[in-house]
């Protein structure tokens, strides 16, 4: 018969593998994209290799941070030896791994996209390299937000004391909390990357409209985060709601279902919101006199795109609170 301590250390190893396994995907793809476009840019103008290399490395370093968060969580999971007070620590370890690993995918891919387009932009218009770099840094940094949500949930799951939580249905709440933030963060990470890629390209083409482009990009990025915030909200509810002890299957599965609903539900709208803002940024840069109508259309389009993630949030809230 396995005891609680065995379960906890086995699950911590599984959680560490999930964290760094999933977490390594996104950053690698994003950095590869940046390096590819850097090469493409250098084929136009090889004499700019110094600037392009510097820009590529800065962008890749930001994309790398999502994977570094995942590495930190994986190492914490490998080497922490918690007191085996409750078997829930084992479930929290798996939840933490899923939350961190899955959320790093989108952020890693997303942060690489503006880095790549900045390399091309610098080569096209070398005199505007500073403006391009500024927009790239803002965009890439905001792309990391979903991964930070995932890291916060992972730390909560690792360091909170669950000894007062009932094992049934607590296991499902902790697993669901990891899945909700982890999955939901994938969409906004990629979406923010698409938005900032077009904004960087726009600033590189028309630096004189950089102020308008940056403003629309920031509006787009912040609205684009919303689905990750819904997932984060459901995770916090799952972790902090006082649960009644209940050994029935339906009480466990409703909490797991809430995590899956808000988690998966955040992916599609997250990407979609990013696409809307990407096209808006692209055209604000080309035609700044239409900024007003473009921003309005962008916000209307985003509100409609958002709707399915709100349905998913409602189903999740029903499952957590009402049933």
């Amino acid at each position: 018969m396995l005891n609680t301590a065995t379960y906890i250390s086995a699950s911590s190893f599984l959680g560490a593998a999930l964290a760094i396994g999933f977490g390594a995907i996104g950053a690698a793809v994003g950095e590869g994209y940046a390096a590819g476009l850097a090469n493409q840019a250098l084929s136009f103008r090889p004499e700019k290799s110094g600037d392009v290399l510097k820009n590529m490395l800065v962008g890749q370093a930001i994309a790398e941070s999502a994977a570094i968060f995942a590495l930190v969580v994986a190492i914490l999971l490998l080497f922490s030896t918690p007191q085996p007070k409750t078997v829930l620590i084992a479930w929290a370890a798996i939840g933490a791994g899923l939350s961190m690993g899955l959320s790093a995918i989108g952020s890693g891919v997303g942060a690489g996209l503006p880095a790549g387009s900045a390399c091309v932009g610098i080569v096209r218009q070398p005199q505007n390299a500073n403006k391009v770099l500024t927009t790239m840094l803002i965009g890439s940094a905001v792309c990391q937000t979903p991964a930070i949500f995932g890291m916060v949930i992972a730390f909560l799951l690792l360091f909170l004391d669950f000894s007062n939580m009932p094992v049934y249905p607590g296991w499902a709440a902790l697993l669901g909390a990891g899945l909700a933030t982890g999955l939901a963060a994938g969409g906004p990470g990629v979406g923010n990357g698409l938005t900032s890629r077009e904004a960087v390209t726009g600033v590189a083409r028309n630096p004189e409209t950089g102020t308008e482009t940056n403003r629309v990009m920031l509006i787009g990025l912040s609205v684009g985060q919303s689905t990750a915030i819904y997932g984060f909200l459901i995770s916090l509810l799952l972790v902090f709601t006082g649960l009644e002890k209940s050994t029935s299957l339906s009480d466990s599965f409703r909490l797991l279902g809430a995590g899956l609903s808000s988690g998966f539900g955040g992916i599609g709208p997250g990407v979609g919101l990013g696409v809307v803002a990407a096209y808006a940024c692209k055209w604000v840069a080309r035609r700044p006199e239409a900024t007003g109508i473009l921003t309005r259309t962008m916000l209307v389009g985003m509100a409609v795109t958002e709707s399915t993630s709100i349905y998913a949030l409602i189903v999740a809230l029903l499952l957590v609170i009402v049933f």
Binding site: G187, I267, G272, V275, V300, G301, T308, A316
Partner: peptide, 23 residues
């Protein structure tokens, strides 16, 4: 309950991407 979560979660992916593309 689990099915409700999966149905709404996965079902939200497609419309989210599609509506975003339209907008």
């Amino acid at each position: 309950f689990l099915g409700a979560g999966i149905a709404m979660g996965l079902g939200a992916i497609g419309p989210g991407v599609g509506e975003g593309f339209a907008a």
